[in-house]
Structures are given as structure tokens and as C-alpha cells.
Design a binder for these strands. Structure first.
Lengths: 108, 108
DNA sequence: TTGACATGTAAGCATTTCCTTACGCATTAT
DNA sequence: ATAATGCGTAAGGAAATGCTTACATGTCAA
């Protein structure tokens, strides 16, 4: 069937794909440089990258015979937005800071 | 095979399960009250709830012949923590505030 | 040009996911 | 006691996922 759009949440549901995104935080990388970090075969890495690409979480740029993958962090916003919905439950610095701001309260 | 722990990220990868969590934000609910909101069969809803239960994202309490499900928002922290990693990319109030804090900078 | 390199695609297979219908089992209501 | 209610579980099947090996393709290097 497949009613459920593949989408960002599906793409980040696999730990290998999250790690790939994490690797790309430090900048673009060609596939081999990504694949080094995983035990799976290189084609498997390509397939994961394809999922990330389809979800819009990365882009691809050809550079000679390499293909560099680049993070598109804005595409993580659906996740950020959804999780933000729950922020009031976590009474951490972040939440305190936000309330602090919202209240216009000056004290730390 | 099954190397990939089911875990929280898997649990929230399905839109129906995210909506179930969203419903529970307003308080505990028995299964039928949850199922009303979905087109799928009630057993399917039970199965989704089971996934959430296994991920620790909800708890179950029996109340007469009902079973009330309750949100366990702290279990979303792995998601929050992971996504927080990317916050520096989103130049919103939140990120500015954090940088503000980190720098010890006093100006808004 | 010929070969090595970087990478994607194809095919195949095991496993998981997600849904359905049928049924089982408490608990409450009559 | 009997029926209705609220739910889980079982069984089964279609599709998706995640991996592998083999192969195709484009690019650089000798």
C-alpha cells in the first residue's frame, strides 16, 4: 500500500542515515568518505543516500568523478517543529530561556 | 536480520503514530477515543499503540474495561537532542537566544 | 587508448511493516 | 446468566526496507 509519504521522518528513522547527516554537518563529502564510516557495502550507502536525497535532506553535486553530498538542514524543520510542540514538557535551560523570552522577563 | 533497534525514531516515523502522540498531549485517552480520529481499523490502532508502548513513548493503565494511554514525553528526548545538534543552522529566535547565552553576550 | 577509480543501478532475497478480518477475553450492563 | 462493550492477539498477505553481489557508466591517469 504506501499511504505514508516517505518524507523526512522516515528518512531519519534509520540510525545509519542519521549518522550520515551528522557527518555532513562538517561539510560536503564524497560518497567514499561517507562510506568509510560504515560497515555496510558501498552500494548500501548509496541507497541510504538516495533516501536522504529523495527526502530533500541532502543535495548532490558532481565534482569530477566524485559526487559530493551536501546537507540541507532546513529540511529538518518538520522534525524540529513537531518536537517543539513537546518542549513545554522538558524543563531544561532551553525551555526556561524561551519562557523567559516570552514573558519579557529580564532575569536569568 | 534486525540490527536497527526499533526505538523512538522508528516509532515516530509513521504519521499516524505522531498524531496519536499529539492527541495524548491533552491527557490520557482510552483506545476508542484515539481510534475515532483514524480511518484504519481499531486493531490497527492497537498495533500502533503497541509500537509506541514498546518505544516507551506511552504507558498503559487499565481502568475498568478501558485502557488509558498516557504520553511519556521525556522519551522524545533522543529526538530533541539529535535535532538540537542542527539548531545552529536555523537562524530563529531560539538559535539566536542560545548563541546569545553561549557567548555571554548581553544584547538581544 | 587502456585501465583504475568513484559511483549508481539491477536483481534477488530475507525481514519488517502495516493493514485486514476473525476471534478471545475481561468487564460492565440488563 | 447473558449480552454488549472495550480491547488485545492471531493469522495472513501485500508492500516496503535493507542488505548483498554483479554489473554499467562516466571520469581521470598513464
Amino acid at each position: 500500500m504506501m499511504h505514508t509519504e516517505p518524507g523526512v521522518f522516515g528518512a531519519i528513522s534509520h540510525p545509519a542515515r542519521r549518522r550520515m547527516l551528522d557527518l555532513l554537518v562538517d561539510g560536503d563529502r564524497p560518497v567514499n568518505s561517507i562510506a568509510e564510516n560504515f560497515e555496510m557495502s558501498r552500494p548500501a550507502v548509496s541507497q541510504h543516500l538516495r533516501v536522504l536525497l529523495d527526502a530533500g535532506l541532502v543535495t548532490e553535486q558532481r565534482h569530477g568523478r566524485e559526487r559530493r553530498y551536501r546537507l540541507v538542514p532546513e529540511r529538518l524543520e518538520p522534525v524540529r517543529d513537531w518536537i517543539a510542540h513537546y518542549e513545554r514538557f522538558w524543563d531544561d535551560n532551553f525551555a526556561r530561556l524561551r519562557r523567559h523570552l516570552e514573558k519579557g522577563d529580564k532575569q536569568q
